[in-house]
């Protein structure tokens, strides 16, 4: 049942974005554009920062991608998966920017050091103590770069395995494996703090 709800939510989220696309393409609806911006700006910026290693540059890259999106709004409805489209556009522009700057920007997504969004699990939920939670968060933040990136895309952006594989130019099998590794490390961290306590 949990599973079905999850798939249903994914479908709903997808339809919502399709709807925003239509409103922008057909009605030039600025509030729809804003909603899209709000939904994707932060996550795309974190993704880009992993490549260009500069929050400022990343924000400009993402802002540029959104400007382009408005410019091309009449063709917006033709994009099947806008989320994936945005991520690929940001990836390409970020790689180009780091090549142009010839700085130590990451040229391969394998080495991307991506930051995760800061989440807050309410200790009042009594799942565990704040300290235990802290050490689990540390474990997540210390995941190997590639596992962490895939974890981010799967958890925060709710991307499907095949889309992650497509975006990162890796196989679905690799996505599956890396995410399993991430889950195992988190489970080990949970095990060590929760078991120690009880």
């Amino acid at each position: 049942m949990v599973h079905e709800r999850l798939l249903l939510n994914k479908e709903k989220a997808y339809q919502k974005i399709r709807d925003l696309q239509r409103r922008i393409a057909v009605y030039e609806d600025e509030s729809a554009y804003k909603e899209l911006f709000f939904q994707f700006f932060n996550t795309l910026t974190r993704f880009s920062t992993g490549i260009v290693h500069s929050g400022e540059t990343a924000e400009e890259i993402v802002s540029d991608v959104f400007i382009q999106l408005w410019k091309d709004r009449t063709k917006l409805e033709q994009i099947q998966d806008l989320q994936l489209y945005l991520f690929i556009a940001v990836k390409n522009n970020s790689l180009r920017a780091s090549r142009q700057q010839q700085k130590k920007g990451t040229l391969s997504v394998e080495e991307m050091q991506v930051e995760l969004e800061s989440t807050y699990l309410d200790p009042a939920q009594k799942i565990m103590s704040a300290e235990a939670l802290q050490s689990i968060h540390t474990a997540i933040n210390n995941l190997p770069p590639r596992a962490k990136l895939i974890f981010k895309l799967a958890k925060e952006d709710k991307m499907r395995y095949k889309d992650i594989a497509n975006l990162l130019d890796i196989s679905v099998k690799t996505v599956d494996n890396q995410l399993s590794i991430a889950i195992r490390k988190i489970a080990v961290a949970i095990g060590s703090v929760v078991r120690k306590k009880s």
Binding site: K10, A154, R160, D176, L179, S180, A182, I183, R184, A187
Partner: peptide, 21 residues
């Protein structure tokens, strides 16, 4: 053991099949 983490990951992401669940 690895299979378990694999299944959990697939469950969380909605990638798991009914059999895997």
């Amino acid at each position: 053991i690895h299979r378990i983490w694999n299944l959990i990951a697939r469950k969380l992401t909605g990638e798991a099949s009914v059999e895997e669940l």
